[in-house]
Design a protein around this nucleic acid. Structure first.
Lengths: 243, 243
DNA sequence: AAAATAGTGTCTATAAGACATTATGTC
DNA sequence: GACATAATGTCTTATAGACACTATTTT
């Protein structure tokens, strides 16, 4: 690119006239499986932090929007279907030395994915994680049993979890972690797993059903030697602010 | 900077090997004056958007943390004293064409400043806004009476206001918009101005005094031909989550 | 005493939380 | 009928909101 007239630039800087930081996006992909909150990590094959696990990410190309870059990364690493996943910007991490080699500012996103196929009817198909160029492996981890993470990725993950815990309280984000149809017990499990505490079943159901965000499908799920559960769906498949 | 070995870089990119975006910080500085929420804007003297008003900002130098860059910008533009101002990251705006010349990703922050000197005792001294290199003027504007803004700055400002409105509901951020000592009426004015609606005086006081975030100083403020008001201070000068 | 702002209490409605038993299906 | 999960209601306490008058100071 040609150097351009510095006087045309805001506040007297010519962004091409001197070195400036690189920008990456990192995507914290979360899902719930087996009553645990799981995060998708990739194992690094290169320095720095070789063999460490890391949140998947990559540099932002000149001609790609931030949001688009994050969504592309997410799709590259997960077999997430064509439906629009829940993907939201989290925070931008920009300490000078967060990458030991170079100045890299990373815009972190977090994604919520429905629980991968558990053999249940209605379970969404979430493909296996996909290792990439400089990642030798990709794998889901219980956030309570993490390996050491590269860079400041432990901090990024913690911010994502805290954000999710907060949002659960005043929005219907939980929709993104469930299949289209689900039982109230499954919904309660989502809340309990993320908040890391048990909830009273009667109060939970009373509350959820009073909010006009769920509707019964009329169908039920029969699984074992016990009473079948009603299946519900969301009235809106998008996050909604709750009263 | 020397080109470095691409294999040392995450996910196979060498950030120096190709053009990449510039990064700026923009700081939405807000204060309350005369029952209006005011934002600090600078008038551009250069293209693009010459003579348009804009949120103050600048490029992030290689050797400066994001937070530090934002705080420096804030101090450059305002006469904010040595005390730590409320300054928090807001959101990162990264659409490819948000700057017509070049790819600029901006990390937006918002700052809350105590009301500038109104002649009252205890009023903090907030110096006059300071125009900078490529800004011919700097001025506080009522957010309800804005001139056309450069770039996507109207959107950035709207995100800041929405964030502030939300935070007011579940934290004690209001502390940052008042002097050390203040009356309950002043505090109520902060809430009413930001939320853009009136609140019931009795309910407001009852709520605030029940939260254990305020303490009476014992002093009072006498201003006109009417009963003087008690002065309060915050028990903690930092944002606190409310029940 | 007029003017102006500070300061106060009750009642109602709604929401949150504690708590235990019955219902319905499979095997 | 044994087993396993689904489903349900009451009471208590805390919170939010509507609502109007008295208190204190200066001029």
């Amino acid at each position: 690119m040609d150097k351009i007239d510095a006087t045309e630039l805001p506040d007297g800087y010519d962004p091409r006239a001197f070195d400036h930081p690189s920008v990456s996006v990192d995507v914290v992909a979360l899902t719930i499986r087996d009553r645990s909150l799981q995060v998708l990590l990739v194992q690094r094959s290169e320095k720095p932090y070789p063999s460490y696990w890391a949140i998947p990410g990559g540099f932002v190309p000149m001609q790609e929007d931030l949001d688009t870059a994050a969504e592309r990364k997410l799709r590259e690493k997960t077999g997430v279907g064509e439906a629009a996943p829940f993907l939201e910007q989290l925070y931008t991490f920009g300490k000078v030395n967060r990458d030991p080699r170079d100045r890299v500012i990373t815009v972190a996103y977090y994604a919520l994915l429905p629980a991968p196929d558990s053999g249940l009817p209605n379970a969404p198909s979430l493909g296996a994680p996909i290792a990439g160029a400089n990642a030798s492996d990709a794998q889901w981890f219980d956030v309570k049993e993490l390996p050491p993470l590269a860079f400041d990725h432990a901090e990024i993950l913690q911010v994502a979890i805290t954000r999710l815990q907060g949002k659960l309280g005043y929005t219907s984000v939980a929709y993104a972690l469930l299949a289209d149809e689900f039982t109230l017990t499954e919904l309660q499990t989502v809340y309990e797993t993320i908040l890391d505490r048990t909830l009273d079943k009667r109060n939970f159901r009373k509350k959820m059903l009073s909010l006009d965000i769920l509707e019964a499908t009329g169908k039920e799920r029969r699984l074992g030697a016990h009473r079948p559960a009603q299946l519900f769906r969301w009235t809106k498949r998008e996050p909604v602010f709750l009263p």
